[in-house]
């Protein structure tokens, strides 16, 4: 009986030991891929962001590829792919080369690597044509400049998808791209004028920006927009602006390019001088 007890304790201890060892390694839960929303009117810059999301998420690209500039990985490093893509295959533009490597990866194998990537348009990864365009945009942006839009047609695309792309083309043409708005338009679009005046030195709900270019440095303007409560001028309510901007979804919508345009616009307001 004593032996049986000892063996029991021993068994529990060994199993507990292995459980303990397993707690020492990184603990990560992997969730099924989320669908990245691709709107028909996305700009190229937005596509790059969406493409990056797909590349690290649903597309599982970064499991094998690195984007670090280190060579010698399992699959080719993508740090400069936007730069080298155009020279990889004769007669292929960078978009065509990237498209082929995604739809038909084993057509061209980078020297020193083994074939083995699966076509990402097929299950299990199963990206649709729009998603692949986003990934191409992202890849172009790595070391180069993205040029594709959701309207770009590729000969690898299936037919129904190109029809869908044509449909989206119409809707995409309808609205102007938010990226090309001027600072003034942005100021109006995000309703900054409700609280801040740029034409009069009188404060409204928030301080006047009539003389913003002289009063604030660019860095202070950035801070005042992105973190309004960091410095609040006297006699104004802290938290009001951040609450307002959060409510209108300003922080989700604004791109770094737009932000720069907006700040530049404000920096030009030198009404006092």
């Amino acid at each position: 009986m004593m032996n049986a007890l000892k063996i029991c304790v021993f068994t529990v201890l060994v199993a507990a030991f292995y459980s303990y060892v397993s707690q020492m390694v990184p603990q990560k839960v992997t969730y099924p891929p989320e669908e990245t929303e691709l709107g028909a009117d996305m700009t190229t810059e937005e596509l790059v962001v969406a493409g990056e999301e797909i590349a690290s998420g649903k597309g599982t690209c970064l499991t094998c590829h690195t984007v670090s500039g280190d060579t010698g990985g399992r699959f080719p490093d993508l740090a400069n792919i936007g730069l080298v893509a155009a020279d990889r295959k004769e007669g292929f533009s960078d978009v065509e080369y990237l498209a082929e490597s995604l739809y038909d990866p084993n057509e061209y194998i980078v020297e020193g690597f083994l074939p083995g990537m699966t076509p990402i348009s097929d299950p299990p990864i199963d990206l649709n044509d729009q998603e692949i365009l986003a990934v191409i945009a992202y890849l172009q942006s790595l070391g180069g400049v993205a040029t594709v839009t959701l309207d770009t047609e590729l000969r690898w695309q299936s037919e129904e998808n190109s029809a869908a792309a044509a449909a989206s083309q119409a809707s995409a043409a309808a609205g102007p791209s938010a990226e090309n708005l001027s600072g003034e338009e942005l100021f109006a679009m995000y309703a900054c004028g409700t609280c801040h005046s740029v034409t009069e030195p009188t404060p409204l709900l928030g301080p006047s920006l009539y003389n913003a270019g002289n009063d604030f440095s660019t860095a202070e303007l950035y801070e005042a927009i992105m973190d309004p409560d960091a410095v609040v001028a006297e006699e104004f309510t802290a938290g009001l602006m951040s609450a307002q901007l959060n409510a209108t979804g300003f922080y989700d919508k604004i791109s770094s390019g737009q932000l720069k345009t907006l700040v530049d616009y404000l920096a030009m307001q030198k009404g006092g001088s």
């Binding site: 199993a15 459980s19 397993s22 603990q27 990560k28 969730y31 099924p32």
Partner: peptide
């Protein structure tokens, strides 16, 4: 079934290794 039938249940995620190890234990 890999690439054919998706797991759409609430248990479709992959748990941590520590959790799996506890189940194994």
């Amino acid at each position: 079934v890999y690439g054919v039938m998706r797991d759409t249940s609430e248990h479709a995620f992959t748990p941590t290794l520590g959790y799996a190890a506890n189940v194994v234990s």
